[in-house]
Amino acid sequence: ALVPLVKETGALFILDGVCATAAVEEDMSKAYQGNPAYKIDIVLSGSQKAIGVPPGLLLLGFSKQALAAREAMERIPAYYGDIKNWLPIMQNPGKYFATPAVNMFYAYEVAMQTVMNEGLANRYRRHRVIARALRAALATYGMRALAAEDVAAPTLSCVLYPEGIDDAAFRKALAAKGVVVAGALAGLAGKAFRIGHMGNTTLADFRLALTTMAEVLNDLGHSVDAEQAISVLDRVCQEK
């Protein structure tokens, strides 16, 4: 819905895909509302999220219209990050512009083989299903996802604590047991945590996370049942 709104103004549509690439469809060839002019122009992403590579690579996708827009600019306040400087290298890797992170390229190649072996449609579906199942399981602990399910992300959830749970104590105890979640930001700091469910994570990972969370919550005086949560996780994953 956003692509036509932006494109109607004559602007380029730039998509932040950092937490989405390889987990959510980002089809730059798709014409929205059947209009060939209504397409995504630029995708900005990184290697460290749903692709599952260590951080270090900036991933960019440019449409022909976006490249033409860059060509029309005389100068921009960037050098290393200027796509115009990278195009000759992409066309002929034998040319030199800057020393590439070769080890990261090899890691990226292996990760993308994993992605393509799973199949994009299967991978997108797995992310959607596990995300929905994990949020349902956390709800049995009195933990409510901030976003409504119909607009919630398939790769990351911000989850509100039940009343009486101290954020710092919860995350510290969880980390001591080998499970790391991130604190919430800005006005939600101390009231919620963020948990990723992206990349090559599995149901086994989240069964372990739910079990560990239950141990911590019970230690903090909030009685929960890990078996019930895991049962919900598995049941939702099996639903059509």
Rank of each mutant, 00 (worst) to 15 (best):
R171P: 04
N200Q: 12
A209N: 09
V179G: 02
F206N: 13
M198I: 11
N200M: 13
I195L: 10
L188C: 06
A204K: 14
M198L: 13
V216I: 10
A186E: 15
M213G: 10
F206K: 07
A214Y: 05
D205M: 08
A169V: 08
R207S: 11
N200D: 14
G187F: 11
K191Y: 04
A176I: 05
R194Y: 06
L208Y: 14
I195H: 04
T202W: 13
T201R: 15
A168Y: 11
F206T: 07
R207D: 13
L174T: 01
I165E: 00
A182H: 09
D205L: 11
F206H: 15
A204C: 12
V216Q: 01
L174G: 02
D166A: 03
A186C: 12
G178A: 01
A189C: 10
L185H: 13
E215C: 07
L203A: 14
V216Y: 13
T211Q: 14
I195M: 08
R207T: 13
T212A: 07
A169F: 04
L174C: 01
T201C: 15
F206C: 03
G178F: 05
F206L: 08
L203E: 15
V180Q: 11
F206R: 07
M213E: 09
A189D: 02
A175S: 11
G187K: 08
N200L: 11
A175F: 07
F193P: 01
G196A: 12
T212Y: 05
D166F: 00
A173F: 03
N200F: 15
K191P: 02
R207A: 12
A168V: 13
A192T: 01
G190Y: 00
T201Q: 15
I195E: 09
M198K: 10
R207F: 08
K172N: 13
E215I: 11
L203M: 09
A209M: 09
T202S: 15
G199E: 09
L188H: 06
E215A: 11
L210K: 05
G187L: 10
R194I: 04
A182V: 04
E215T: 14
A168G: 12
F193R: 03
E215F: 06
A173G: 12
A214C: 08
V216F: 03
A186S: 15
A182M: 09
T211C: 10
F193E: 02
A189G: 06
N200H: 15
L188T: 06
V180R: 12
A182G: 07
G178M: 02
A182Q: 10
